[in-house]
Design a protein around this nucleic acid. Sequence first.
RNA 1: GCCCUGGUGGUGGAACUGGUAGACACGCAGGACUUAAAAUCCUGUGGCCAGCAAUGGCCGUGCGGGUUCAACUCCCGCCCGGGGCACCA
Length: 968
Amino acid sequence: MEYNFRDIETKWQQHWKLSKAYQVSNDSSKPKFYVLDMFPYPSGAGLHVGHPLGYIASDIFARFKRLQGYNVLHPMGYDAFGLPAEQYAIEHGIHPALSTSNNIRNFRKQLDNVGFCYDWDREVRTCDPAYYKWTQWIFLQLFDSWYDRRAGRAARIADLVTRFEQEGNRNHPFPNERFLVNVSPAGAPASLQAGFTAAQWKQMDEKTRQDILMEYRLAYCGYGEVNWCEALGTVLANDEVVNGVSERGGFPVVRKRLRQWYLRITEYADRLLEGLERIEFSEAMKEMQTNWIGRSSGANLRFALADSPHALEVYTTRPDTIFGVDFMVLAPEHDLVEAITTPGQRQAVSEYIAYVKSRSERERMAEKKISGVFTGAYAINPFSDRKIPVWISEYVLAGYGTGAIMAVPCGDQRDFAFATHFQIPVTNIIGAHFNGTEANPTKDARLENSGFLNGMLMKDAMEAAIRAIEEKGIGSRKVNYKMRDAAFSRQRYWGEPFPIKWVDGIARPLAESELPLELPEVENYRPGPEGEGPLANLPEWTGRHLETNTMPGYAGSSWYFLRYMDPHNDSAFCSREASDYWGQVDLYIGGTEHAVGHLLYSRMWTKVLYDLGYIGHDEPYKKLVNQGMIQGSSRFVYRLDGLDPAAGLILVSRKFYDAYLAAGSMTPELAGEIAGQIPGPALTTDGCAAWKISPLHVDVNIVDGYELDREAFRKWKPEFGAARFVLEDGRYLCGAEVEKMSKSKFNTVNPDDLVNKYGADTFRMYEMFLGPVEMSKPWDTKGIEGVHRFLRKFWRLFADEQRGWILTDESPTAAEWKVLHRTIRKITEDTERFSFNTGVSGFMIAVNELTELDCHKKAILEPLVILLAPYAPHIAEELYQRIHPGEGRSVLDASYPRFEEKYVTESSKQYPISVNGKLRTTLDISLDAGQQQVEQLVLANEVVQKWLEGRAPKKIIFVKGKMVNVVV
RNA sequence: GCCCUGGUGGUGGAACUGGUAGACACGCAGGACUUAAAAUCCUGUGGCCAGCAAUGGCCGUGCGGGUUCAACUCCCGCCCGGGGCACCA
């Protein structure tokens, strides 16, 4: 009657599959609960032990909720469109659809090994036409919508057209700062830049009207500066560019002006911020999204220029510092640079602009040099009439605010550095708060040298300055965001085609009946002409005037959580009944890497669908938990280099490498010690000064702790077959380092191997036992034995080798009830608050205690099995069958044990008492929570007085009805 | 530089709203069973000191202060690690 996990696990996995035990219905009287994992991108590398961490946690939670009587939706699918599959296709000539489905099959096999309770009937794949039909459909809804700022929500384009017909765009000014990006600024009629009347609208031709409408659409096509990656041959979104290079592949990225599709996510900036207050995300996550959105408020204000008809508009968050402006700075790309530069400075300015253009994005980020040049022009401070020099510098960004700033060196460190570098005199408006050597960005100083603001606290002056600016008619209050509209097109093949046709330069949506617009087969995946995608190489595609770009990876993942609710619906992306029933994702688990990508886009899409009335909630996720990353714990062997080649491959143990490092080079003593261990043809120490020792990654799976399995090493790779080892204490010890888990570092551990050796239940519990789910930690397989031992011990409460099944119907003793109910309370609380590691400990304690009590009673063990079921479902099911033989009941449908206080309350006990918080003793008193406070005090006083031989205590402190401390 | 996290035995980590710090597990040491090994089981395991002993005392949660009868927990000031953002005016 051994615990034979292999048979048990295969048996129940098969049974659950055949009986569709995890199929979920949308039709239930039970309360719903939606547990979601971030679906994986099925890469060719397969799973390592880090991947299932979050899946196991969500699986436990889903099972736990099901036992508690909820109708639990717990689906899984694949984020299957994207660059890697296409890169793979280019390199190996295998169609992405094929490699993707192979990878999915492999993933699925690995997932099934762990025994998850996914309802696979609801699986989605973003590359499946039946799925992306609806991605295209939602895109068309975005295309057919605009953001009504007055109503604060999305509305239909038809509604906008009606308004234009009635009132022009006076009440609905162009949403974008870069007015008419669609026709490029030069092409925009000047008459339109100031808006248009209803009459003007009616006189426009179709093309002009459509270009204007494009300026409002939530999904729009226009010209803009984009992140162009030559190596990948595509445009990337801001979150896909890290430190000036592509996130995937690390290729250089340059700014380029191209026609692109965008999502007008900036219109949702405020609602995305506001929504964060209503959802449970970690502080770090909220912080990241808040920073990314980057809301700031201040004022736009115009400075007149001396001897010029132009005015210079700047954005500032500190209008209170207006009297401290010592110079102005324009971005080198600013439109006015040309017009205001004086003849004398022309040469210097054009040289500087050439220099700036020569610098890559990467260089700009890496070395932040102070650079700039004077334009020769002067602005006039509107309040003091002071003449202020106007400079250009690359530290001012063209894309933010107005692309121009007023520089206040006493209050802004960058301005201060610039002023110092170019020896521009600094005006002090904050008195003693400014020390002359660095800027002070305080808001608490009283203003000096500040005209009508003199003597005011800066905080208060802010409002006063904005009012004065507005009264003078030179500017107004203004809110800015760092976030840009999201680039939504890719010049690639492996993505959703846009359901758009270009007719006479106008983008026309396909009819719903034409969806899905299927991705055609192609011969090769090379880019099309003029930066277009591979689809541009297909005559049958371009002949139909179809858009040749495809959608980015995040399109499909922006709404997949809705599809799971109604996955087979072919007349809607998700019926309103289904989305009303399931509502928000109650618990979403995944890594932090999607903080500013997927998690923002999907929040936006949800808000749009909500605004348009397709769903009833505007935040997709109620609670988000970020699982930590499991790092690899790499192992190294140390190769002796610089020897006579005849000596062959010699590896030295860790201590020699440490000694070598400490000495800085090979010493004769060390060499002698090494050579002494190598038998056969003598390894002479002549020329040992040239010896080197270099670390080499070794497969962690052939290392036990630090000790190398030398036989396995010799078999690992042919070239190691004749390796000789220099040992310490008879063993070969490896070095260790914590690194990212990856195949190339040979530090990956495959879950399949562990499941095979210890079983899925052990594997699941061990992953949880490692520590809090949210925490990152290096993987260490040592310790899995402890969890495995626990399961075997648990098994032995039911059966042992001599007696077979030893379950009894006896009624439990008080001590046994107590163990059970303490465990019910602990496991329930721990699971509820996501503390699975202490939950696992709770089981271990219970089993140790019951083993001690020699308890084999069904009345105790049955509830325990149910508690264990979310953590270790296979063994729980097997044992549940043993308790209820032949009844065909599954532990999946058992009801969760109820905790009862009465079994765990202590009646009368010896309490440890401290006196003055120090001295401790125990007093035999019987006071419990039930008694009234006064009664307690009187009783305690008596006991303590007797104990202190008559002295009266000053104070007695109770905690939860127990006396814990006495002050005398 | 700014923001968010975290710092507890040899190790992973417990201690949820201040109430016997170190649960549980790994590792280690000793023992039982065994011809032997594996497996299994039992005992011990923060440090220092005293005692033949059961036991007792002192010190201990990154460092320095503070609040409290009582601080890993709260407050102030530092130090170190991990993550994010980084010319956003």
